[in-house]
Amino acid sequence: MDNSKEHPLILRVMRLTKPSIITSSPLHNEASDTLPSIMGHSSTQLPAYGTGETLILPHSFGNIFLGETFVSYLSVNNESGSDVTSVSLTADLQTGSQRITLSNKSLNESLKPETSLDAVINHEVKELGNHILVCIVKYNRPNGETRSFRKFFKFQVLKPLDVKTKFYNIECDQVYLETQIQNITPSPICMEKVSLDPSTMYTVQSLDISTHGEFNSQSYTKPSEVRQYLYWLKLKPAHLKKAFTEAASIIGKLDIVWKSSLGERGRLQTSQLQRAIMTPRDLLVQVNKVPERLKVLEPFEVLCKLTNYSDRSKQLMVKYENQSNLLWQGSSGFALDKLNPKESCFITMHLLPTSVGIQSISGMKVVDTELNRTYEFDDIHQVLVA
């Protein structure tokens, strides 16, 4: 590699980024200070010095955050007094795992004095750690000899957000996803978009809704501040038979878009999120329909779905046992039609609330008459009785 000072060409590299804000600390004075009198001002006329905010351009490559777009301006200048032929400029980005070519530009004609070969490169950074921008300049001397030189520019890619997730399994086909996102940059950022892209097996509903629309939409997050988001996912009916399989463990990806305080956009997408699969059950009872408002001593109906997740057909019988605050009405010990594997049937239950407050529907028993095995279902659903 040749020393670039021996060459007729000069390579200049500048990262294109928004300016930052530099804030000067004000210097306050008191009545006893001598500075105002020296300057010919009274202390009441000059309460402070050096106040205000100023934009400052970056003086180095600095740091860049994961998900942001690295943009740089490259310029090869001919500062000699003669033409230079066969000028080419190559820019590669070396990461911890790969080398990416960002630009490969050349001139078919000669580069005249005081002119330049320019290029603008951009790349969305998707890896953490050290990155090196490698710029290679090649040209021909008047005698036809090919010469070259290169420059290296090193910068660090940092993690902007700390994302934590937690799953709450409701049933085998439903799950809540709680997401906590912390701003670990030194500056405020605007959370422009936080969404969950579900897998093809699930539907998703965001529960971060307030009276003003989406919760925390377009709001600034201070350094170290944490924002929480909640999603409700349900298996699509066509995939219910896969509820206890590994295929149902894949939930989807979080897509996060933010902006810095001066408008630079960044985007992060997590890897596939996975939930823990619930232990397979032979039978599963799910509530499909229940009245929203209940009054004490007024009967109500609950529509339930009973699903056979076992590998054999079952001949079933349903029994009820009364609880203290909810009484079962109607017949108990009635038989159902034979239920084949992975099939469901619907049962309408009649109950009478005897106390106000939150009451739990319990005391349902399903008996497999062929195996003489009893399945007990408690805390099937909770209702509010007024």
Rank of each mutant, 00 (worst) to 15 (best):
D378K: 14
T348L: 03
L11S: 10
V257R: 07
Q329C: 09
V257Q: 08
R99T: 13
A335L: 12
S86G: 05
P353Q: 07
S187F: 15
D368K: 03
L297A: 07
Y73K: 04
S360L: 15
G52S: 08
I121N: 07
I184C: 01
T54A: 06
R373G: 01
L297Y: 13
L207I: 07
Y202P: 07
Y202V: 05
E246I: 09
F149C: 10
T374W: 04
L93I: 14
E30S: 12
T44W: 09
D2F: 14
S37R: 05
D118C: 12
M39S: 09
L339R: 12
K253Y: 10
M191S: 13
L235Y: 01
E192N: 02
N140Y: 02
L262C: 07
Q205F: 06
I277G: 04
F377C: 08
Y231M: 10
L268K: 02
Q269L: 03
G266R: 02
T54D: 09
E246F: 11
L207G: 08
D92R: 15
E127W: 08
T51D: 13
P280I: 06
T95I: 00
G144S: 00
P353F: 08
Y73C: 00
R373M: 07
N78M: 04
L107S: 07
F334V: 03
Y320C: 07
G252Q: 02
F215K: 15
K295F: 09
K112W: 06
Y176M: 12
L297P: 03
V134W: 08
G330H: 06
P47K: 10
